[in-house]
Write a protein that binds this DNA or RNA. Structure first.
Length: 511
RNA sequence: GGGGCGGUAGCUCAAUGGUAGAGCAUUGCCCUUUUAAGGCAAGGGUUCUGGGUUCGAGUCCCAGCCGCCUCACCA
């Protein structure tokens, strides 16, 4: 029998002993008078004399995190919502039966304690227990109290342990919650309506990622988990919901990395009678206020660097290529390299030679097959992205990589689109929305290929008329990473996708 | 999918190719103001799996599984 199983059986047996003492193994409720945080807030200033004079009776609950037996007495720390409070028990205060219950208590158990506050010789605020009740037993052995749970895989798999033992992990999710509240409030104040659109879609549109496929039995049709809510949200704008936002999951059947989880949370929002310029300014303010709301400052530490959200740098995509051109790759492309096919291909060739020799990056495949826009985009992503540590708005993208964005009036091959980068990651993407149905249909057909299906209801919605609109998506998980200095997207997602585990059964319940 | 690193007791970690250890946790005894409580004693191992080299493998080699990092994929 393994130690796990041995401990499991010992602790189940203790539940039986507890019932023999007249207690419930798993009681239904416990009426506490205080949260541990309330006790800390109200009585941390009280000295021993005052606590003795105005004796404060409390009933508290918490999980046992430390346990120190002293013969016919003992100490423990209860933890509740990240707060700890010490309790002191002694046989003469608890009585024979109460003390027998104490003897059956283990690390990790949930306990209800009734008593009065006092200060120990070392001055620690402590509950002098008069009555204790086991509320739920930890039948599995608890992680080590000092080093805690380090194994990164187990921290994700068994988040319930991680959240209790690693309080910095708990703090990340409290910050995440604060960000979500802030964002909802900010959008409501700007007159936005929060909506929910289908996560199961008959066609996966709005982005170019591989979808997950499932099947609906009653209708006998394939359904796709959405890769973006975009096309549904814009239908709503066409329907007169002039400002809408949605915060929810997208699903992309692609690789997993420190910046990618197959399901991730996206904030998408659309406002009528607006354009990408307006959204750039508003996004800039939004990020600054979000940083302040969540961290208390517009300057945020991320991977040892200070990111300043008080203002975004701005840079056109086309400028980015010469700006971040590495010396080792030879002469910089000229300022209008993108307008001339031969200059562009020369730049790609120079970059590819550089990528091969320095091992500094991935080569850009098949320059002759790609159109100019794809090449400029590839150059930008390979050269610039990692340098965009300070919050930066990159604007004006090639049309060929932006099938849903509206062209620039004076440059038909370029669109009114921007992305926001910070910490070397893309965190937002927005544009003036294309609302000409014929133009949209042409671009869909070009993207999908002649025979492939396109979302013709979306085109139909545009045919009824969608007002001029600007929209944007913000990657919430990555934003949380920035605001919590997280190294991996998995640190900011409670249950990141992992290969399934086979759970060890504790051969409990007497076999 | 490519490359790099890792997998040892419940947890955190040690161990030149030579008897697998420590701290915490667990069990028993002592202990009525401790706090990583303390003292005495005990139990606990498929060293990820399978092959191979060797007198001898946790250690070296090969294959596989799992994880992390990285590159690729991913508007």
């Amino acid at each position: 029998m393994s130690l796990d199983q041995e401990i499991y059986q010992q602790r189940r047996a203790k539940l039986g002993e507890l019932q023999a003492l007249g207690a419930a193994a798993y009681p239904h409720h416990y009426a506490a008078t205080h949260r541990l945080a309330e006790i800390a807030a109200e009585y941390s200033g009280w000295d021993a004399e005052r606590l003795e004079r105005d004796r404060i009776h409390v009933k508290v609950t918490g999980r046992i995190m430390t346990l120190r037996g002293h013969g016919k007495a003992g100490f423990a720390h209860l933890q509740q919502a990240g707060e700890r409070l010490q309790i002191y028990v002694r046989q003469d205060a608890l009585g024979e039966t109460g003390f027998a219950v104490w003897k059956l208590v283990d690390l990790g158990d949930w306990l209800g304690v009734e008593g009065y506050l006092f200060r120990t010789r070392t001055g620690e605020l402590t509950v002098h227990a008069e009555k204790i009740e086991l509320l739920a037993k930890a039948c599995r052995p608890w992680p080590e109290k000092w080093h805690g749970l380090q194994d990164i895989e187990r921290r994700y798999r068994q988040r319930y342990l991680d959240l209790t033992v690693n309080l910095e992990s708990r703090a990340i999710f409290l910050r995440r919650d604060r960000l979500m509240r802030f964002l909802r409030e900010a959008f409501q104040q700007r007159g936005y309506l929060e909506v929910e659109t289908p996560m199961m879609q008959p066609m996966a549109g709005g982005a170019a990622a591989r979808p997950f496929v499932t099947h609906h039995h009653a209708l006998d049709i394939p359904l796709y988990l959405r890769i973006a809510p975009e096309l549904y949200l814009k239908r709503l704008v066409a329907g007169g919901l002039e400002r809408v936002f949605e915060i929810n999951r997208n699903f992309r059947n692609e690789g997993i990395s420190t910046r990618h989880n197959p399901e991730f949370t996206m904030l998408e929002f659309y406002e009528a009678f607006s354009d990408y310029r307006a959204l750039m300014s508003w996004s800039e303010q939004l990020l600054a206020s979000a940083a302040r709301a969540v961290t208390g400052s517009e300057q945020v530490t991320f991977h040892g660097q200070t990111l300043d959200f008080s203002q975004c740098q701005r840079l056109s995509l086309r400028e980015g290529v010469p700006r971040f051109w590495p010396v080792a790759a030879g002469p910089k492309p000229g300022p209008e390299f993108w307008a001339d096919r031969s200059q562009l291909e020369a730049a790609v060739a120079a970059y590819n030679r550089y990528a091969a020799t320095a091992g500094a990056g991935a080569p850009i495949p098949s320059p002759s097959g790609a159109d100019a826009g794809e090449l400029v985009m590839a150059l930008f992503e390979n050269l610039a992205e990692e340098h965009l540590v300070q919050p930066t708005i990159v604007y004006d993208f090639p049309l060929s990589v932006s099938p849903l964005a509206k062209s620039k009036p004076d440059e038909p091959d370029w669109v009114e689109r921007f992305e926001i980068y910070a910490g070397g990651m893309e965190i937002a993407n927005g544009y003036s929305e294309l609302n000409d149905p014929e133009e949209q249909e042409r671009r869909f057909r070009q993207q999908a290929g002649a025979d492939a299906a396109i979302d013709s209801d979306y085109v139909r919605a545009l045919e009824y008329g969608m007002p001029p609109t600007a929209g944007e998506g913000i990657g919430i998980d990555r934003l949380v990473m920035l605001l919590t200095d997280a190294a991996s997207i998995r640190d900011v997602i409670l249950f990141p996708l992992q290969r399934p585990e086979t759970v060890a059964e504790p051969e409990g319940l007497g076999g």
